[in-house]
Amino acid sequence: MDTILDIRNISKSFFRKAALTDVSITVKKGEIYGVMGPNGAGKTTLIRIINRIIEPDQGSVRFDGDIMTDSDLSKIGYLPEERGLYRSMTVYNHAMFLARLRGLNKKDAEAKINDWFDAFDIQDWRKKRIEELSKGMAQKIQFICTVLHEPNLLILDEPFSGFDPVNVELIKKELIHMRSKGKTIILSTHNMKSVEEICDRAVLINESRKITEGSITELQDARKLGLYAVRFRGNMIAFVNALWTGFEVERKEVLGDDRFLMHLKMRSDRQFDDLLRVLIGQVSIEAAWEVKPSMQDVFIGLVSPVE
């Protein structure tokens, strides 16, 4: 997969306080890339540097293979975390204004606005003033204004904050749809569930430095504890006898009607196949899987101080 964004050794400080220290990331075309980190980690600074809102003290940003210039901004859509709208403007005028700023001519802008207003079923809002809209409605407009010019790279800073669950799903669906059309999306969020659900790869930044970067599976694998889960029906004594000394029970959960959920760890060089082999015939296995840490666990595990 080609690289759309290549950030190399970026450093930035404000009044001698480091906001980013030697951060390098690569974002591939057609992926949803998560940027994770606690508050004040440097995520917004990184995003502002990508958008050329601020300049790095050191390092370079390459867009589509070349050093990024102002002309590349028309290929980027940016939805900041704290976004605003001109309250006295009408929905249509606002969308038109931002579309023109992003380089669309009037005719194209008109067509795109119509398409997106249809897609979100908001044609009735065209002449409404922004101040007449609810928060959720305004956020829809903000999202539409971000994607109106069909950017190749979409940068969304906390895009789900403030949305109700229905609209969160709507936005997620739209992002997945855009990825399927070859668009690249950078998603900065605290919502780890969303990262797990829709991101292909992610980076974790903490205290101005990059902690880790990789695919979601890689990130989870790096933090897994060798834990396996088995849900079965049968006799608990038979289950324990079957395990004998090769496995260690970590947690037991009684589900009722002779059904149990057991969490186990392997001893020595035992594998998942060995576990299944000893259990088959002893109990009725309903499900068995390797327990991976959630992205929430990965996040907390990486940013929490070691005790």
Partner: peptide, 16 residues
């Protein structure tokens, strides 16, 4: 006003 309602960051992603 642009600063306080944060529209400025959206604008600065398109204009210097």
């Amino acid at each position: 006003r642009e600063k306080s309602n944060r529209i400025v960051e959206v604008l600065l992603a398109s204009v210097s």
